[in-house]
């Protein structure tokens, strides 16, 4: 059984959860994800593994409450057990010493980019991290990101903390400062990743994005998570979840994420759902 060892609210609707999953912890690498179900009647949802503790046999996930499943999950307490957890799934992030890597996380996406930054730093990269949120109160993992970065830049949409504006503006500033950037990793809401890919495109900086389409089995069986990359249809669960941001059809991704908008609203009285893009 996958017992919940620890649950912490990082902000009003973002939760960090430590879950017992020894076999997953033993095998997991940065960039990989799990699919979990809260109970037998639940939906299968993919969540990136943020950290593992191989000794304790635990993994950490971070998620935002966006719909019924994440609401149910957030309501589970320490000592409760998840109905199922399967993983690690997906390809690990391609990690090598690229030189200078910029790791960008927006909102709950900071949780996904954090293990990537950590792995890059460990491999000898100079890591510049840019994290952003709508406002200061909901910015997560600042200290963790600082601990794995040579430089940490923060942006908030409302200017309540750090740079007043978007992470894409900050990235533009870094590029404009003349800094040589060898690779960019960007994880966050789809519109953010799309804009970041446009920022780096003219400079030919390879930009890796982590996609979070709707999945069912997540083993390459169903095709729910198909995305278009470089004009080719790929399955995010087995071919990804990371792809070259310059090749991704973000419009299609947005459209497909909205597929069950009406039904999710029907199932959930909550004001927000993932139909907003993430």
């Amino acid at each position: 059984m996958n017992e919940i060892i620890n649950r912490v609210f990082l902000s009003e609707n973002v939760i960090r959860m430590v879950v017992s999953a020894p076999e997953i912890a033993a095998k997991r690498k940065a960039g990989q994800f799990v699919v979990l179900m809260t109970d037998e009647k639940g939906e299968r949802i993919p969540l990136t593994i943020v950290e593992d503790d191989k000794k304790k046999g635990t993994i950490t996930i971070i998620f935002q409450i966006v719909g019924k499943t994440t609401t149910d999950l957030a309501g589970m307490k320490e000592g409760d057990s998840l109905f199922s957890v399967v993983g690690p799934l997906g390809h690990p992030t391609e990690i090598e010493n690229f030189g200078t890597s910029v790791c960008i996380g927006g909102g709950v996406g900071i949780g996904v980019v954090y293990p990537i930054a950590a792995a890059l730093r460990e491999t000898g990269n100079e890591v510049i991290s840019i994290i952003g949120a709508r406002t200061k109160d909901i910015l997560i993992l600042e200290e963790e990101m600082r601990s794995v970065s040579d430089e940490l830049l923060v942006a908030t949409d409302d200017g309540s903390y750090g740079y007043h504006g978007f992470v894409s503006d900050v990235l533009k500033n870094v590029i404009d400062s003349g800094k040589t950037i060898d690779r960019v990793f960007a994880v966050g809401p789809v519109p953010m990743m799309r804009v970041l890919a446009e920022v780096t495109r003219p400079f030919h900086i390879k930009t890796i994005v982590s996609l979070n389409p709707i999945m069912v089995d997540a083993t390459g069986m169903c095709g729910a998570c198909r995305v278009s990359v470089g004009g080719e249809t790929k399955l995010a669960c087995v071919d990804g979840p990371e792809f070259d941001g310059h090749e991704v059809d973000f419009d299609l991704l947005m459209t497909r994420l909205r597929m069950y908008c009406d039904q999710e609203k029907a199932a959930m009285d909550a004001s927000r759902c993932r139909c907003n893009g993430r």
Binding site: K41, G42, R44, V216, M221, L252, R256, R258, Y260, Q263
Partner: peptide, 30 residues
């Protein structure tokens, strides 16, 4: 072929049979 509303049979049947989406919203999978 990637438009919304287009399924592989695997996905359509998995949703309905394994995830019991035909009993949505009693079951969560739409």
């Amino acid at each position: 072929e990637n438009l919304s509303g287009i399924y592989s049979a695997n996905e359509y049947l998995t949703r309905s049979n394994l995830m019991k989406a035909y009993r949505f919203p009693e079951y969560d999978t739409p």
